[in-house]
């Protein structure tokens, strides 16, 4: 009856499918089992296990790395909903460690200090799905080509200021609109432009050696992929976006969402769901904030409900009006 030889794990369908199950939900940053429990009780669809929330990462400075696996394990044991965790951009060994622990999704995140200035992880080589940040269509498409099963706006984490998340959502949405009316040859030139990011290592080597840059479609530029293969992979994703009128993976919003109204706003702009980082556990009343944000995401198109759940919530996280260090510039 069952064809066990056809049993497959970690296919694109399974990875992207997992992300789709999170739609319409709120994913909350937590740093211990107790916070994870508060998040689950409030109706979070998943939690992101961290050693510090982004606001504290900013405040403390230094190198931000993958959280202690023991902490992550404690959080996994505390709740029944999916547990995600962050690794540094490009840090394949951290990602492998997280996969070994059994986290449900890995966030290759600019909130941690990048480990590789040239490349992101080749996420197709993993069984576990990845989410990655993006602030433009080019970044989103590159991450999808590398195998990300979910995209989130980068926004500006730890600021409690929604402005950057809004900027990134608008930039991505408008670029998708532009693409839907583009003829194929123009789309192909966009693919070539988007693929240039993968040539930075090659280009800087040629420059250092003082030899001419004779990049051809057959030049291997990233992992085992040639420049030509990358262009054609990106072109296929662009064609899919043109047909669907949206990204082929779920697109969440993250980076600065602090209040129920912020969350509702991002949903109105077309987000499939939201990540709330420092906004909940840096507020004066985390359980109430958590519940209110879940309700606001569900009823984002009903202002009276967003108003109702926002009543008497207490202080939101203090937030930052001007941003000193822009984490979003990490990992393009």
């Amino acid at each position: 009856m069952v064809e066990l030889e056809k049993l497959r794990f970690g296919t694109d369908l399974i990875k992207r499918g997992f992300a789709k199950m999170q739609k319409g939900g709120v994913i909350m940053d937590v740093t211990n089992a107790e916070q994870a429990q508060i998040a689950e009780d409030a109706g979070a669809v998943a939690v992101m296990a961290l050693h510090k929330v982004p606001a504290d990462i900013r405040a403390s400075g230094g190198v931000a790395r993958m959280a202690d696996p023991k902490k992550i394990q404690e959080i996994m044991d505390a709740v029944t909903i999916p547990v995600m965790a962050k690794c540094r951009i490009g840090h394949e060994a951290e990602a492998r460690a997280l996969e070994a622990i059994g986290v449900d999704m890995i966030d290759e995140s600019e909130v941690l200090t990048p480990a590789d200035v040239f490349f992101h992880i080749d996420k197709h080589k993993f069984t576990v799905p990845f989410v990655c940040g993006a602030r433009s269509l080019g970044e989103a498409v590159r991450r999808i080509w590398e195998g990300a099963a979910m995209i989130r706006t980068k926004g500006e984490a730890g600021t409690g200021n929604v402005v950057e998340a809004v900027r990134h959502m608008r930039l991505i949405n408008r670029a998708i609109e532009e693409i839907t009316s583009m003829p194929k040859e123009v789309l192909y030139s966009v693919a070539e432009k988007f693929a240039e990011s993968y040539c930075r290592l090659y280009n800087s080597i040629r420059e250092e050696l003082g030899v001419s840059n004779n990049l051809t479609p057959d030049t291997i530029v990233y992992e085992e992929y040639t420049f030509g293969e990358i262009v054609s992979g990106i072109y296929d994703i662009l064609l899919e976006i043109r047909e669907l009128g949206r990204l082929p993976v779920v697109n969440f919003s993250a980076g600065g969402i602090a209040t129920p109204a912020d969350a509702a706003f991002m949903m109105r702009l077309g987000a499939d769901g939201v990540f709330v980082g420092s906004g909940i556990f840096k507020s004066s009343n985390p359980p109430e904030y958590a519940r209110a944000i879940v309700e606001a995401v569900r009823h984002y198109d009903e202002p009276e409900i967003v108003a109702e759940v926002s009543k008497g919530l207490g202080e939101a996280m203090i937030g930052m009006g001007s941003i000193v260090e822009r984490l979003q510039e990490r990992g393009v």
Binding site: M1, V2, E3, L4, K6, L7, R8, F9, G10, T11, L13, I14, G17, F18, T80, P82, E99, G102, V103, D104, M105, T127, V128, P129
Partner: peptide, 17 residues
């Protein structure tokens, strides 16, 4: 039984009757 087959890493697809 929730999560009967394990976590996301253990998620799978298979032809069944």
């Amino acid at each position: 039984k929730r999560n009967a087959f394990g976590r996301q890493r253990e998620s799978f697809q298979v032809p069944i009757e």
